[in-house]
Amino acid sequence: MLSPAKNASAQAPKAREPSFSQREFRASLAMFATGVTIVTARTPSGELIGLTANSFNSVSLNPPLVLWSLSQAASSMAALSTGSHYAINILAADQKALAERFAGKREDRWADVPFTEGPGGSPILAGAAATFECFNRSRYEEGDHVIFVGEVERCHHRAGAAPLLFHGGKFYTEHPL
């Protein structure tokens, strides 16, 4: 009789083929309301990098870890994969225009955007509801995305700031129940 370890390696279980279309998958994912972030960094040559992302989540309190993901086809992938630091800026409800600006392909996306520079070199956006300054701890390729795990070196939040939310392809703000 094979031991469980030998049996597992001989015939690893696999997921079944999806029974739904990519469109149905996206529509189902859109039912999950998320916050909106802009991930920021600098290239080694000093170029500013920034992109809107809603794939942010906490991982661990000790050590303090967060994650987010990025399409492998993203133009900023090389800079974000090799850089040592990035910041995750959680947007406030009054920053919808900024979310839209950094979600599109604009050459002037940083024009007139107020920010300060964090100790790791990443831009910290003025007015964000919260900011996490992260060491680029690890990356995992999964499907067509890379999952980034950041070790938080500094964080702060703006007390009383209402967050910008995204659900079903539209932006919202919070309303207590």
Rank of each mutant, 00 (worst) to 15 (best):
V66D: 00
A41W: 12
A30Y: 02
I147A: 03
S71E: 10
L177P: 11
G46P: 14
S58D: 06
S81M: 14
I90D: 02
N136F: 04
E174A: 13
F20G: 06
E142L: 15
L98I: 07
V36W: 01
R26V: 07
P163G: 10
R23A: 11
Y140K: 05
L98H: 02
S122V: 08
C155D: 08
G35A: 13
R106C: 05
R42M: 11
G104M: 07
R16G: 08
S9W: 00
T37V: 08
E24D: 15
L80W: 09
L165E: 02
L48K: 11
P44E: 01
A30L: 12
F56K: 04
E24V: 09
S69I: 10
A92Q: 04
F25G: 03
P123Q: 01
V113L: 03
Y86M: 04
K170P: 02
F171I: 07
R26M: 05
L67Q: 15
M31D: 06
R26Y: 00
N62Y: 03
K170L: 13
A74D: 07
H145E: 02
S76E: 06
S76N: 09
S55E: 08
S84A: 12
L61Q: 11
R26E: 02
A8M: 09
S71F: 11
L51S: 08
K14P: 01
A5R: 01
G169Q: 05
D108V: 10
Q22T: 09
S122E: 06
T34A: 08
G169F: 02
T40W: 03
A162G: 10
L51K: 08
I38H: 07
S138V: 07
F148C: 03
T131V: 13
V39S: 07
A99L: 07
H85W: 14
K6W: 00
R106Y: 01
E107K: 15
